[in-house]
């Protein structure tokens, strides 16, 4: 479904991604692991066209999206939950979902905003609150809910567990498992090794802008060398 080939991305003169290959298939959860500065977030940003790759190819549902602008890439069926959650401080919970709903008119699988309120009853209680008034956990629920509304084929999440309390992480894990079970593929960057291995079927380990390991989750768990060298777990 998603195929990334030999991606090279620069920030100014800095050669951040040095030939990253990865792929995600339907209803699969793929985790990208690695230390800070390994190029994980840049990989996601390059796929989404936020920091376009200088060389290489990104193919999604048989369409080359490498050079498309972000809004077109998203329209082709990808939803994004960014690292800082991307919640708008001056926009209400309900409006966040309505904007995402309105922007995905062309998607047959888009979900009404009530669907999100069923999954996250807490958001329904806070539907008139502004994004800036939400707690970290509520913001993360809203970011995931907003991504769900579009009914994406692939949901990309950058460190969804960052800064959340353990109970909220458990809830998040359950929600993400349900999303995967309902047929949406997940591409996840995560520092939380436990959460990543719970969710992922397949894992890539990045270091210095290159893929150092690719394999299913069991083989990563079995590979002490890779875990010690690149993940310190």
């Amino acid at each position: 479904m998603l195929k990334v080939e030999q991606l090279h991305t620069y920030y100014g003169e800095g050669h951040i991604l040095q030939g990253v290959d990865l792929s995600v298939t339907t209803a699969q959860c793929v985790a990208v692991l690695g230390r800070n500065g390994a190029g994980k977030t840049t990989t996601l940003r390059s796929i989404l066209g936020l920091t376009p790759a200088r060389r290489g190819r990104v193919v999604f549902n048989e369409i080359d999206i490498t050079r498309l602008s972000t809004h077109r890439i998203v329209k082709s069926g990808i939803a994004f939950v960014p690292e800082d959650r991307g919640i708008f401080p001056t926009v209400t919970v309900e409006e966040h979902l309505a904007i995402a709903y309105g922007a995905s008119k062309h998607r047959p699988g888009r979900k009404p905003i009530e669907y999100v309120f069923e999954i996250f009853p807490r958001l329904a209680e806070r539907r008139r609150s502004l994004g800036g008034q939400l707690s970290g956990g509520e913001q993360q629920m809203l970011a995931v809910g907003r991504a769900l509304v579009a009914g994406p084929d692939l949901m990309i999440l950058d460190e969804p567990s960052e800064g959340l309390a353990p109970v909220i992480i458990e809830k998040l894990e359950a929600v993400l498992k349900n999303i995967k079970a309902s047929g949406t593929a997940l591409l996840l960057v995560e520092q939380n090794y436990h959460l990543a291995t719970q969710l992922a079927d397949y894992v890539y380990v990045l270091s210095q802008g290159r893929v150092q390991f690719a394999g299913d989750t069991e083989s990563l768990i079995a590979n002490d060398d890779i875990r010690r060298t690149y993940l310190s777990v």
């Binding site: 602008s69 972000t70 329209k75 991307g86 001056t90 926009v91 904007i99 922007a103």
Partner: peptide, 10 residues
């Protein structure tokens, strides 16, 4: 609030 996020919503 966040121009980039708006484009990332399509």
């Amino acid at each position: 609030d966040n121009r980039e996020m708006v484009t990332a919503l399509g």
